[in-house]
């Protein structure tokens, strides 16, 4: 079994400098929970001092019941081969988050997409507003209250017979007037 020495050393280095909590999930995976105002200082610290130079991913999860967005930054060190998650929570009604464009250039793309899909504001972010969608006039589409099936049924013309979640065998037999055979009844939904 691996002894998780490097992972514990990394966790101690961050938690003692910044007074935050975290844990070692398994080998090669460590996570820390930070406040939203200290995220950029933690990322600068691990990038310059500890060698976590590869920004692997940046994502956002919409917890609608708790009224918050969770931002997760995934960084990786090619020397230690450990993946570190830095997590922060922001308010869902007026989401504003720091812009880490100056630390990694590729974060510009992730932040433009999140501005469009979730409605998060990043002060100081340059780049055209429309990245993926064109002439979009509804609420940001990845929020949980946006019903995509209802929007698609109203805007685009649907062919008859294409409604949601119907049993294919029953529908075909209803149209031609035959009965469902016995061997097929065990796959039926009832």
């Amino acid at each position: 079994m691996t002894d998780l020495l490097k992972e514990n050393k990394l966790l101690d280095a961050i938690t003692t400098s910044f007074k935050i909590e975290g844990k070692v999930i398994r080998d090669h995976r460590v996570e820390v929970n930070a406040d939203k105002n200290t995220v950029s200082s933690i990322l600068l610290f691990v990038k310059n001092q500890l060698g976590y130079i590869h920004l692997a991913h940046m994502t956002c999860v919409d917890w609608i019941d708790q009224g918050e967005y969770e931002m997760i930054y995934t960084v990786y060190s090619p020397v230690d081969k450990i993946t570190l998650f830095v997590k922060a929570r922001i308010d869902r009604e007026k989401p504003i988050m720091e812009n880490i464009d100056t630390i990694w250039d590729q974060a510009n793309t992730y932040e433009r997409e999140m501005r469009e899909m979730f409605g998060i504001e990043f002060p100081g972010l340059i780049g055209e507003h429309d990245f993926i969608l064109e002439d979009w006039d509804q609420i940001p589409p990845m929020r949980k209250e946006f019903d995509t099936h209802k929007y698609a049924a109203e805007t685009f013309f649907t062919r008859p017979g294409r409604e949601d979640a119907k049993d294919v065998r029953e529908e075909i037999n209803k149209r031609s007037g035959a009965k469902v055979p016995d061997f097929a009844k065990k796959y039926s939904r009832e």
Partner: peptide
């Protein structure tokens, strides 16, 4: 192109 295929409930693709 016939009836929307597997993206029938997507907000960005046309249905036919």
């Amino acid at each position: 192109t016939i009836n929307g295929g597997m993206y029938y409930d997507s907000y960005n693709t046309i249905n036919g």
